[in-house]
Design a protein around this nucleic acid. Structure first.
Length: 428
RNA sequence: GGAGGAUUCGCAUAGUGGCCUAGUGCGCACGCUUGGAAAGCGUGUUGGGUGCAAGCCCACGCGGGUUCGAAUCCCGCAUCCUCCGCCA
């Protein structure tokens, strides 16, 4: 949720932010109206409640039975009214919360206005290989995965259905190597390593903004009311819920490895081949708690660490500034790093970093104790390594004419010094 | 899964219907004292809502209920601890 005071004082900024997201500015006015009736309900209730309390004290101090009885009669009446107005206040607050939960964070003025296709390319780094000049047709990751004995999609479908896979042999080793390398990088940069739960309660999901429009994309276990996280961001943000962090302890940086589960409800027919879009993958995620003021620089820093990662993997990629309409509910701005996928002839998202300012922190009640008082902190997240897609990009970009795959130098120590992954005798 | 116990201010605790406007100790901050420190003494020390403000209201794990009045009584739930059972 966003800061109410600023919403009241300057509703036009919020309306404009809604327009930039292609969302309804009327929601802002509905919220302000609900806030109005909520506050008047609070005032009425509190006035009655104060009267009730003072009468209650007079009852205790009453001098005789008649005086006492008279006070009791009067008080009974007030007590009934208090109950009525309390219900009215509860209802007004519920309506207010319902509306305010729908309002996304105010998109940054620097984020391009518009929808999914209105992103701005910030830079290109590296050059896609010219396979024609090298004299061979690149194979896709499905074929490469089979030949290396690394990715078993057929059996994934047999056991778990569409959008599931097994990483086998060198494929499994490759993921573990990538995870170890990513965790090492982040740890060296000062992140505290974490292994968080992948099942969370509704509060954590709601607080990170995944139960609004994004709810259809989330797996839910109704018998136990658990959600499967789509990213460890959820567990990392909720980690400090209801806490007041010392200003000295900021920024706090965590890096988590966890499985990620996504229903991919809105993407039927998209990326149906291979393991580019799957119901489960593993991810190494960076997460920062800091101040709102420091969040903008921190966002650039997270992007910098992602770029460092791409450089180590020697992948050609571009960085885009996501348009306001394509931001998640919580984010004010988002940068994606998109790797070149040779057989698709396109750049595709591998990592993503969002600045959520104090939006998630307000919902999860995470504050900092500063010299001038207690205020919500800012939260930011950034992917370091999303396993399935990273493997796709690595195999396709570093494949060689004989069907083997070159291992980038930085990754070699994590694969016991291997510099090439060779096809196996019996492909999958 | 079963049986008991617990949950109060950063920590430890007191509190069994109105004297709780939640006390005390520790810790922390500031001051006095001192050559400096410790000790001692004194003062302060949760958060939220609402209001221009004074103030008022809320919160004793969470949600209901009883009552004129609930930290206190009743019901439900959650979490933690102990024991039993099962288990990677």
């Amino acid at each position: 949720m966003i800061d109410l005071r600023s919403l009241r004082e300057d509703p036009e900024t919020a309306r404009e932010a809604q327009r930039r997201r292609n969302a309804s500015p009327a929601l802002v006015d509905d919220i302000l109206a609900a806030d109005e009736s909520r506050r008047s309900a609070i005032a009425s209730f509190e006035r009655l409640r104060a009267e009730q309390k003072s009468l209650g004290k007079q009852v205790a101090a009453a001098s005789g039975p008649e005086e006492r009885q008279a006070l009791l009669d009067k008080t009974r009446e007030v007590a009934a009214q208090v109950k009525t107005f309390e219900a009215r206040q509860t209802a007004a607050e519920a309506e207010f919360s319902r509306l305010v939960a729908q309002l996304p964070n105010l998109a940054s003025l620097e984020a391009p206005a518009g929808g999914e296709d209105d992103f701005v390319v910030l830079e290109h780094i590296g050059t896609p290989r010219d396979f024609a000049a090298e004299g061979f047709e690149p194979l896709d990751h499905i074929e490469l995965g089979k030949r290396l004995g690394a990715i078993d999609i057929e059996r994934g479908a047999k056991v778990s259905g569409a959008r599931f896979y097994y990483l086998v042999g060198v494929g499994a080793e490759l993921e573990l190597a990538l995870v170890a390398m990513a965790m090492d990088q982040a740890r060296e940069d000062g992140f505290v390593p974490m292994l968080p739960p992948a099942l969370v309660k509704p509060r954590a999901m709601e607080g990170t903004g995944f139960l609004g429009q994004a709810a259809a994309d989330v797996f839910h276990l109704p018998d136990d009311d658990f959600y499967l996280v789509g990213t460890s961001e959820v567990a990392l943000a909720a980690y400090h819920a209801d806490e007041i962090l010392d200003a000295d302890s900021l920024p706090r940086r965590y890096v988590a490895f966890s499985p990620c589960y996504r229903r991919e409800a809105g993407s039927y027919g998209k990326d149906t081949r291979g393991i580019f879009r799957v119901h489960w993958f593993d991810k190494v995620e960076m997460f920062t708690y800091t101040t709102v003021e420091a969040s903008y620089d921190e966002h650039r820093r997270l992007l910098g660490w992602e770029k460092e990662w791409f450089a180590k993997l020697e992948l050609p990629y571009r960085v885009i500034d996501t348009a306001a309409g394509d931001l998640g509910l919580s984010a004010v701005r988002k940068f994606d790093c998109e790797a070149w996928i040779p057989t698709q002839g396109k750049y595709r998202e591998l990592t993503s970093t969002s600045n959520c300012t104090d939006f998630q922190a307000r919902r999860l009640n995470i504050r900092g104790r500063f010299a001038d008082g207690v205020r919500p902190v800012a939260t930011l997240n950034g992917t370091l390594m999303a396993s399935a897609r990273t493997i796709v990009a690595l195999l396709e970009n570093h494949q060689q004419a004989d069907g083997s795959v070159r291992v980038p130098k930085a990754l070699q120590p994590y694969l016991h010094g291997r510099s090439v992954l060779e096809p196996v005798d019996t492909p999958l």
